[in-house]
Nucleic acid binder design. Sequence first.
DNA 1: GTCACCTTAGAAG
DNA 2: CTTCTAAGGTGAC
Length: 161
Amino acid sequence: MNPSHIKTPDGIFTAFFSERGLVGLEFPRRSKSAKKPVPVQRDAPPHLKEWQLLTQAALLKALAGQRPGKLPPLDLSAGTAFQQSVWALLQSIPPGHTLSYSEVARAIGRPKAVRAVGQACGANPIPVLVPCHRVLAAHGGLGGFSGGLEWKIKLLGREKA
DNA sequence: GTCACCTTAGAAG
DNA sequence: CTTCTAAGGTGAC
């Protein structure tokens, strides 16, 4: 890929870009930040620098509980059709609003695929910008969160959800 | 083929 | 209220 550091008040995120756009985003590694000398990179997207700036700007706003605004192109080609429809729907959820897994399932035309939705959210490669944290369990329960439940709580709190 | 997963509605005890 | 079950999509084994 193409790891790029994105500085935010919450730490340094790492973004990955393909020639098509943003393909992944990682939360700050709290324990060991010691990671990569960055293996040799081959592809350098033509708009890399521009995308990095857009990603940082969008991330800062999203972390502050605001609409991310202009986003760099997202390359979600790694996901299945089902996952992409879920992720697309999540991006349409405004800050401060939340949906339950069942509502998301219904919204994409698969009312019985509630668990699959959970699976799709967990497989989301771009947390925060693709707000998987705005999906709660049916009775207001938080449900789980692979990136760490604390992020889910922190983000929702800032959005006053 | 089987199992586990960021789930949930419904039926039974 | 608690416990159990079935059901959807997907990837690991």
